[in-house]
Computed example of a mutant assay.
Amino acid sequence: MERKSQQRPLRADAERTVRAILEAAERVLSSHPAATMEQIAEAAGVARTTVHRRFTSREALVDALTAWATRQFYEAVTSAHADSAPPLVALYQVTANVLRVKISWAFAMSRTTPEDPEVARAHADVLDQCDRLFRRAREAGVLRPDTDLVWARHVYYALIHEAAQNRSDEAGEADDVDELATLVVDTLLRGIGRQGSSLSS
């Protein structure tokens, strides 16, 4: 028991070190995609040997970064309890959570590929959760009864993508992300046209 209690701080310290390296890699590679392991180590505040001990190569570091971002993306959706929370509440929460990940881990998210089994599994599960949420939203009257849910999901994904891509430099703050989430959901549910307008009017 004594040996286990002594190891826990080491594991926690190792996790903090890895997290610091990944966060530094995201910051550095977002600005300088060709940055070296040495530059990443400097940004993380650790020795170069520490980075090489955790990651055998620059490619391994980038792979770990994309895997981390994928897990954050998956957890962002599942933590919103889309299957149990009221549909409108869940929709806002999922949107805000996903935007935080896409903004905070933009470089890593841009490197994920559907060929990666972990990425494929995460996105397939997220797709299922999104479809179930949209069905519940239609049943609850949040969406019109005649809503094409596949089209609605495509529009929703596109709105999130644009909100993340076109954010202001200060949009990493929580309040700004909440505002972006509100904009995405309001645009999805209410559109941008004047109520009652039509092609025939």
Rank of each mutant, 00 (worst) to 15 (best):
K4S: 13
Q7W: 06
P9S: 08
R11H: 11
R16Y: 05
E23S: 05
E26I: 04
E26N: 03
E26P: 04
R27W: 02
V28T: 14
H32T: 15
H32Y: 12
M37Q: 07
G45E: 05
G45K: 01
G45N: 05
R48C: 08
T49P: 01
V51H: 01
V51Y: 00
H52D: 12
R53P: 05
T56K: 13
V62P: 04
A64F: 08
A69D: 10
T70L: 04
Q72P: 00
Q72T: 05
F73G: 03
Y74C: 07
A76M: 06
V77Q: 03
T78K: 00
T78R: 03
A82R: 01
L88Q: 06
V89H: 00
A90E: 04
Q93M: 03
V94H: 02
R100I: 06
V101W: 00
V101T: 03
W105I: 11
F107W: 14
R111K: 08
T113S: 09
V119H: 02
A122L: 03
A124T: 01
D125G: 00
L127T: 06
D128K: 03
D128Y: 01
Q129W: 00
Q129A: 02
C130V: 04
R135K: 06
R138F: 07
R138P: 13
A140I: 15
G141W: 14
V142I: 13
R144F: 15
D146F: 10
L149E: 12
Y156G: 11
A158N: 15
A163M: 12
N166G: 14
R167S: 11
R167H: 13
S168M: 14
E170P: 12
E173C: 13
D175P: 10
L180T: 11
A181K: 03
V184F: 11
D186C: 10
L188N: 05
L189W: 10
L189I: 09
R190G: 13
Q195N: 09
Q195G: 08
G196E: 14
S197K: 04
L199V: 13
L199A: 13
